[in-house]
Design a binder for these strands. Structure first.
Length: 477
RNA sequence: GCCGAGGUGACAGAGUGGCUAAUGUGACCGCCUGCAGAGCGGUUUUUCGGGAGUUCGAAUCUUCCCCUCGGCACCA
């Protein structure tokens, strides 16, 4: 079966055929760092992390570029509010973003370019556009992209007509604008001496919002990307603007073959927004839930679906994930107690079937929901086999290896101990001592003492499980 | 106004012409257990927003209707 990807450009599920054999150039629009990143960012970057890792899993050589927009109007506005230097501010939130991504087990991009480190390249690209007649400089020193030079591409990604875009309720006419045509977008914005800016052939100023992605994707990716991704909200105008300017710049090579957009995240069925007061940063949610739960919650939903965040939904995701983790724990214990008998009891076949099902699901536009559904079914069968039969160490190791194989793609079996468990955690020795005491009580059928020790451990986040093979314990997740 | 997504069992959410409609959560019952936990089996579930139609056969196709949500130059 061939990998199929939903392409926003064609609105169709297409076979994934990279431009250059196994080489895949992938660019995902990064955040504008004027604040701590919110859950919507987590949704987007975790989704694309899975997509990237699956491509790697399928043998592609992926070059993943994701930028940091560390200068723009919002960064400057926020800095003005707080009285901080804009560069200090953006640096701080860049670090915060990278920290969040690490916590959520998102693989760092191969290149993470920053706008402020590419001003010369941006100026050069704008010059190219001016020289080839697709951009113009105004008397005030602003530079705009001339939409009429590539009119045929208007609405190419958003599937809107020119009229539709002009009539859009959100289409406002800014009196400050000195552009020739309402849909033209700014490439270079003039700045006064006091404002953040750089010198350019058109005077002091700073880059417009869209140009940085064109410049950096071309420098670190290719003039022709295989995949360009981002949130649904970037389809228009951001990504369309990128198509116009990039293709104008490269001589009309198709900028990206596939355009992928993740769905939104809502909070209690409402759009997350600051005005509604339902805005959550990643850090706020991490205070209450383990990173593994947040990651599982995101991965357990198809990337293009709207995902509704609520405390209840996250708790449910945590319980669902725990089921898989319990299976892994069960297999680990079975492994410890198993012999090298070479007994298989159908595990090898089960693994192969599940792997095929996993690939089928993921090949279908990264259907992680179905893929994880297969894992649950797999887990149930594995639990049955180890409860009823005695597979040898080899087969059990294969099961563990398989979980780790899918985890390379999904990243759902990451460290799952929430912040609550970290502080007054008992040491392994202390736990062993208490278990020994309890075993003594149990041998004497002193259930009261035995249960009180168990309760005490539970309060400290240690779960005791009596099984046929003896007592075992684990830290609560 | 324009564009888009979606309505599936208590809830969440797969499935786009054909085995008893995945899977998870919840609830209940049973097995196991000193009890609990974990696990396993079962029930909740002949049903897919409503009508009409196509078909040997539809949650899946056609058509009409109802409803929800999102985007439209701040935005992942």
């Amino acid at each position: 079966m061939v990998l199929k990807i939903y392409n926003t450009l064609t609105r169709e599920l297409e076979d994934f055929i990279p431009i250059n054999g196994k080489k895949v150039n992938m660019y995902v629009c990064g955040p504008t760092v004027y604040d701590h990143c919110h859950l919507g960012h987590a949704r987007s970057y975790v989704s694309f992390d899975v997509i990237r890792k699956y491509l790697i899993y399928r043998g592609y050589d992926v070059n993943y570029v994701s930028n940091i927009t560390d200068v723009d109007d919002k960064v400057i506005a926020r800095a003005k509010e707080t009285g901080e230097d804009p560069f200090v501010l953006s640096r701080k939130f860049t670090d915060s973003f990278i920290e969040d991504m690490e916590t959520l087990a998102v693989l760092p991009p191969d290149t993470r370019p920053k706008v402020t480190e590419h001003i010369p390249e941006i100026i050069e690209t704008i010059s190219t556009l001016i020289d080839n007649g697709t951009a113009y400089v105004t008397a005030r020193g602003n530079v705009y992209y001339d939409l009429t030079s590539s009119k045929e591409k208007i609405g190419i990604l958003s599937h809107q007509t020119e009229e539709g875009l002009l009539e859009g309720s959100g289409c406002r006419v800014d009196v400050e604008d000195d552009k020739r045509y309402q849909l033209d977008f700014v490439l270079w914005k003039t700045a006064t001496e006091e404002e953040t800016g750089w010198d350019s052939p058109w005077g002091r100023g700073r880059p417009g919002w869209h140009i940085e992605c064109t410049v950096m994707s071309m420098k670190y990716g290719s003039e022709q990307l295989d995949i360009h991704g981002g949130g649904m909200d970037l389809v228009f105008p951001h990504h369309e603007a990128e198509i116009h300017q990039s293709e104008s710049c490269s001589g009309n090579h198709q900028f990206s073959k596939y355009w992928m957009h993740n769905g939104f995240l809502t909070i209690d069925k409402e759009k997350m927004s600051k005005s509604l007061g339902n805005f959550f940063t990643i850090k706020e949610v991490l205070d209450e839930f383990p990173a593994a739960t947040i990651r599982f919650f995101i991965v357990y939903t198809h990337y293009r679906s709207t995902i509704d965040f609520s405390k209840e939904a996250l708790e449910e995701a945590g319980r669902a994930r725990k089921r898989l983790v319990n299976t892994i724990t069960n297999v680990e214990h079975a492994f410890e107690n198993a012999a090298d008998t070479g007994e298989d009891h159908g595990l090898t076949e089960l693994i192969n079937e599940t792997r095929d099902a996993f690939i089928d699901s993921m090949d279908d536009d990264f259907n992680t929901r179905e893929a994880i559904g297969n894992l649950f079914a797999f887990g149930r069968k594995v639990n049955s086999i180890i409860a009823d039969q005695k597979p040898g160490k080899g087969s059990l190791q294969d099961v563990l290896d398989f979980f780790s194989e899918v985890n390379q793609v999904l990243g759902i079996f990451i460290d799952d101990h929430g912040p609550a468990n970290d502080e007054h955690a008992l040491s392994d020795e202390e736990i062993a001592e208490m278990i020994e005491l309890r075993e003594k009580a149990r041998a004497e059928k002193d259930w009261a003492s035995s249960d009180s020790i168990r309760d005490e451990l539970k309060e400290k986040g240690i779960i005791i499980e009596d099984g046929k093979e003896g007592v075992r314990w684990k830290r609560e997740i």
